[in-house]
């Protein structure tokens, strides 16, 4: 299980990176943390002509509080994000999700931005940034543009990133008063990709869900926002009847794919169980 040969480049600046992306086009692959790309290379599922290692681009690893919110550099290691003291305060959803992202020795290397740009349909972080309505900052030669997280994830391993573009940072807006976050997932083993995961970010008022953002992972081609379900729960107290109604609404929100780990029916069922669990926790404390 050895990779096919490739050329390796390690640009020192974004400009150099743009040059290389232009030079190789679709034959060039960006290497960030490598925790998804390297297995694909080893298995020869990916056989790019060139690997463009952006790990040493300066200034992309910071985690900082800015006026527009919490800004997480694309090259911030997942482990650094997990351990960042500002995370629990400024992005508790991400703080809760982080321990589920792989394992200790993959989080030390895997990057925050890499996980997003990889857009694995079962990954935790894409669902989180969608639920938090984060902004993805994307650099290209012409300058930087911002893409709302909800528009960033387009399909399996597919994002809004155009050829020649690099995700450089993610801005998470400040948490408004009354908003609460719960992340949870159902995985057979700790650290596995989830059979289903739910990133919930909701405004809870007087024991009821006032505004809901419910984003599922592992049940679609990309993070799935459960808008029908959100509509059912919004503004209501979560008694068993509402939870049951929400579960039925979820049927219309999700069309999960089947794979060797779970059938469509199982994923639907688990999503519903997880929804009940997460909503109960959300209003419970």
């Amino acid at each position: 299980m050895k990779p096919a040969p490739f050329v390796y480049h390690r640009p020192a600046t974004l400009e150099e990176a743009f040059d290389l992306l232009e030079r190789y086009g679709p034959e060039g692959r960006i290497l960030a943390g490598g925790q998804s790309l390297l297995p694909a290379l080893n298995m020869r599922l990916a056989t790019p002509a060139a690997v463009i290692d952006i790990n040493r681009l300066p200034g992309l690893g910071a985690i900082r509080l800015a006026p527009e919110g919490l800004v997480i550099g694309a090259l911030a290691r997942q482990d650094a994000v997990e351990r960042s003291p500002v995370m629990a305060q400024s992005a508790p959803l991400i703080a809760q999700a982080m321990p589920h992202v792989g394992h200790l020795a993959t989080r030390t290397r895997g990057t925050f931005g890499g996980s997003l740009a990889q857009a694995d349909p079962a990954a935790e972080l894409p669902a989180c940034v969608v639920a938090l309505q984060a902004t993805m900052r994307v650099a290209r030669r012409a300058g930087t543009q911002e893409i709302p997280a909800a528009q960033f994830f387009r399909g399996i391993y597919t994002t809004a990133l155009a050829p020649g573009e690099i995700l450089i940072e993610v801005a998470v807006p400040p948490i408004a008063p009354g908003w609460r976050s719960v992340f949870d997932e159902l995985a057979r083993r700790h650290g596995d990709y989830a059979l289903v995961g739910l990133a919930a970010h909701c405004r809870v008022s007087d024991g009821a869900v006032a505004d809901a953002r419910l984003v599922f992972t592992g049940v679609g081609l990309a993070p799935v926002r459960a808008s029908r379900t959100e509509a059912v729960v919004s503004g209501r107290r979560l008694d068993p009847g509402v939870l049951a109604e929400a579960g039925r609404a979820l049927e219309g929100d999700l069309d999960p794919p089947a794979d060797v780990h779970a059938s469509t029916a199982l994923r639907r069922h688990l999503a519903r169980a997880l929804l009940t669990r997460v909503l109960t926790r959300l209003v419970g404390n």
Partner: peptide
């Protein structure tokens, strides 16, 4: 609880990696 070599009807192994063939790990 976990381990299973799953084949499709054509005899293709669907659990050919350690991500798909679930061995017991410490946490469980």
């Amino acid at each position: 609880l976990f381990e299973h070599c799953v084949y499709d009807e054509q005899g293709q192994l669907l659990t050919g990696t350690m991500g798909d063939y679930l061995v017991p790990m410490a946490a469980e």
